[in-house]
């Protein structure tokens, strides 16, 4: 049984104009696997409570990256109002299927749509922390450069990890790929791999279909959808 725990915010870091990373102190945190998530519960003074699931962003400790959703019920509080010292309740780590273990020998293909980068970043960080040499490839689709998370970290060379960015609406000047939807060419050519796809439901549907079309075994494609908006 997994119980609710009190988490105290210790640090915040803006990732871009609408996403923020929150680092929490959670006494007796049992540790987790890259890709797992937590359920967060906020309770108002009148007893009304709202719950959301957020992926853990790093291999150790409780670090969440939250994308602000306009008119959202929870994300505006987490990304704008919550301050170090404030507390919330969370439950986890949960989810044992969308996970990567550093002893996994197979090459890994990560496909992120927008805020879907978070659990995949946790996998890249877990690989680095474990000193694993598993080949990793990340294809990260975002609308525009302003939406990128972890930009500096992703652009820094990390041996064995290749990163390609696919801008869907607007690319920075000089970017080799014209802006547009993710295509098979972005995900190919086929190479044997364990695939992890995370993003909004529509993105995950189409990316998973592209992977199957390229020849990937559906049984080796793991997906995590966070709904139409994520809040």
């Amino acid at each position: 049984m997994t119980r609710w725990r009190v988490a105290r915010l210790t640090k915040v870091r803006d990732e871009n104009g609408t996403a923020r990373t929150l680092v929490f102190d959670v006494p007796d945190w049992p540790g987790h696997l890259a890709g797992q998530h937590v359920d967060v519960k906020l309770t108002a003074g009148d007893g009304y409570s709202a719950r959301r699931s957020y992926s853990l962003a790093g291999p150790e400790g409780v670090e969440l990256t939250v994308q602000r959703v306009p008119d959202g019920e929870v994300s505006p509080y987490l990304t704008l109002d919550m301050e170090p010292g404030d507390e919330l309740e969370l439950r986890g780590p949960v989810g044992g299927w969308f996970v990567w273990r550093p002893d996994g020998p197979a090459p890994v293909l990560l496909v992120a749509g927008g805020a879907g980068i978070v659990p995949l970043m946790a996998m890249i960080r877990a690989r680095r922390a474990a000193g694993a040499d598993t080949p990793f490839r990340l294809v990260y689709a975002v609308r525009s450069p302003e939406q990128l998370c972890y930009t500096d970290e992703l652009l820094r060379p990390d041996p064995g990890v290749s990163v390609s960015l696919a801008y869907t609406r607007r690319a920075p000047e000089g970017h080799p790929r014209p802006p547009g939807r993710l295509t098979a060419a972005d995900l190919g050519p086929y190479g044997e791999a364990d695939c992890y796809v995370c993003g909004p439901t529509g993105f995950v549907e189409s990316a998973a279909a592209l992977l199957v079309g390229l020849g990937h075994d559906p049984a080796r494609i793991r997906t995590e959808r966070f709904g139409p908006t994520g809040d």
Binding site: T2, H37, V38, D39, S53, R91, G92, V94, G95, G96, W97, F98, T201, G202, T223, E224, R225, F226, G227, P228
Partner: peptide
């Protein structure tokens, strides 16, 4: 079309 997947059942 606005469904999630079974990962969302993990916590509950």
């Amino acid at each position: 079309a606005d469904y999630l997947d079974g990962n969302a059942l993990a916590g509950p």
